[in-house]
Design a binder for these strands. Structure first.
Lengths: 338, 338
DNA sequence: ATGAAAGCGCTAACAG
DNA sequence: CTGTTAGCGCTTTCAT
């Protein structure tokens, strides 16, 4: 706030050249003699010159930010996602502008629109509430948008893992360990992730010749308290020996409910989660779960916007395969190990 | 990327006035007749005009962002902090630009400098690695900087809770429940938070006439694996019946270590944590801990930068008092309840 | 009360 | 290879 920052003009004066020459060497645009280049460069370093991003953006028509919209910034899942994004963005000149929609649709829409208008040259949207049409409407300039957590079939630039496969793996693992009454704590049935997981659960069941029993499936909301409530509901219904939980946070809540009802894990109830958040390994017993490479997904999402923004950006090779992480929350019901 | 966005010029043409008039009504600067005001306003709405923040910033000399530098974006503690910041920033036109230093000093310094130069009109720095002098050096324009997690005595605009008091409360609680061999898992002894907590621990001890025994204190790094290792070290030393843990994440790791050595919590070892992160209540047994109002601290930090930026901004009334949350990880050793 | 014009700092033709 | 000039979109004197 004190003295003016040094401008390109200052550099040009010190170097004894015109501003356009300075601009040329700084951006390596246009031809420059070796002598003047050095001259300018030393002048710039000497003055610690930093181009004004506003002026630059004004002429280049770019805001300079990548906007990210997640339901919550906090939380074990999205935090890691953001970290992945930041990891690739830090190699660029784009800044990371984050916003959270707090699970509110109007809020999401408004904030995303604001982001697109004021802050971002491209956005990453992790959520299900806004459809392709919604997004198009708030994005009149057709800036790159990558969407996470929606059906790849319906949206372009959608990044995700194969949730169906993950759920299949989880359920299959339970079946292989002799479980046949397998409950499922699910999410909002209107969303793609939830449906995919349900589908994977069902596929494993039917493949093993096990019936699908709707009384064993309860919807919740992917939070710890939600998982707690869901487990309570399950406990009041038909008997089961295992739960496949839609995410680890709900598994955490379920653990609590199970303990409150004196059910031992895994002796009385086995449990498999989804996501493999950091804390899963510290649960007691350590949670067997499906690992989702959320950090890598953040990197992939960021790389994708960057690539959409600039054809020369390298695509990051990212394995977006879910993988079962075996820990100690599943009891083997079979006499011989599978 | 397709058609140009509408500019103030477009609005002025539609309204049949000059651009300066439009600017005046939009910013309520200068006198305007009621008629032209309405005229301009309707033209603006009709065109869905959004001022270009770059052009605006260029003339007003403001970047438009509040930069936040935390060690990690992910994680149960800083995520909530960021959420608090976002909460107050969303009421303003400032964007939230986040960066993480990944625990690397040079990285922090460089990134913070970059933020100050390119993105932010003010920054919030949560960390201990950069001193007042370091900060001053990278902040030639004297932009507002609020610092978290350092000694309030040494830095202006420092926001924090009374860690010493929190630690005192925790240790005192243990003592009141009949514990006298109380171990402490600490952090980097060079940092202010860690020293404060240690001081609170010592004060409670000496106040109760209990000796301070250095063999019962081990330093770690505030992570889960760090807590695990620290507990292991403790287990190899003198006997103790309780641990006061520098934060909940290390408590989580300690739980694991204790279980690995067949120590029951709280029957064999009682535990008190610090922070009250979301997961603490889901630990088994639920962790008794010192609640740090980190969300509110985020809000307070943001309000403070805003106030520094603009004298008219209201200061948020925030209670930054630590508070003991009693759950089930402490065994009462006394015959009668305290 | 309103308009004309200068200028924020930078890039990109256009000349030379 | 380098300098001059015209904007980018907006705010703000300075006139009127």
């Amino acid at each position: 706030m004190t003295r003016k920052r040094t401008t390109i003009k200052d550099v040009s004066v010190l170097a004894g050249v015109s501003v356009s020459t300075v601009s040329r060497v700084l951006n390596s645009s246009g031809p420059i003699s070796e002598d003047t280049r050095k001259l300018v460069e030393s002048a710039a370093t000497q003055l610690k010159y930093q181009p004004n991003p506003l002026a630059r953006g004004l002429v280049n028509q770019q805001l300079g930010g990548i906007g990210v919209m997640v339901p919550w910034i906090a939380g074990p899942y999205f935090g890691v996602f953001l970290e992945g994004i930041q990891r690739v963005l830090r190699e660029t000149d784009y800044r990371l502008v984050v916003a959270s929609g707090q699970g509110n649709r109007d809020n999401e829409q408004e904030t995303l629109a604001y982001l697109l208008n004021n802050d971002a040259d491209g956005v990453i949207y992790y959520g299900e509430r806004l459809s392709a049409a919604d997004l198009e409407q708030i994005n009149p300039h057709m800036k790159p948008v990558v969407v996470m957590g929606q059906d790849p079939a319906e949206l372009p630039n959608n990044i995700g893992i194969d949730d169906e496969l993950g759920a299949y793996l989880a359920t299959r693992y339970l079946i292989d360990h002799g479980h046949s009454e397998i409950a499922h704590i699910s999410g909002d049935p209107h969303t793609h992730v939830t449906r995919s997981k349900l589908a994977g659960y069902q596929r494993a069941l039917s493949q093993a010749g096990l019936p699908y029993r709707s009384g064993l499936v309860v919807s919740s909301n992917y939070t710890e308290p939600g998982g707690y409530q869901a487990a309570l509901k399950l406990l009041a219904g038909p008997a089961f020996t295992a739960i496949f939980c839609g995410n680890d946070q709900m598994a955490m809540g379920s653990y609590q409910a199970l303990r409150d009802f004196n059910k031992r894990i895994p002796e009385d109830v086995s449990m498999v989660g989804f996501d493999d958040i950091l804390f899963s390994r510290y649960m007691h017993p350590a949670l067997t779960t499906v690992r989702v490479p959320i950090y890598e997904m953040g990197m992939a999402a960021a790389s994708t916007v960057l690539r959409l923004l600039d054809r020369t950006h390298q695509e990051v090779r990212s394995v977006l395969e879910p993988q079962l992480i075996v820990r100690h929350s599943v009891l083997n019901l079979k006499p011989t190990p599978p």
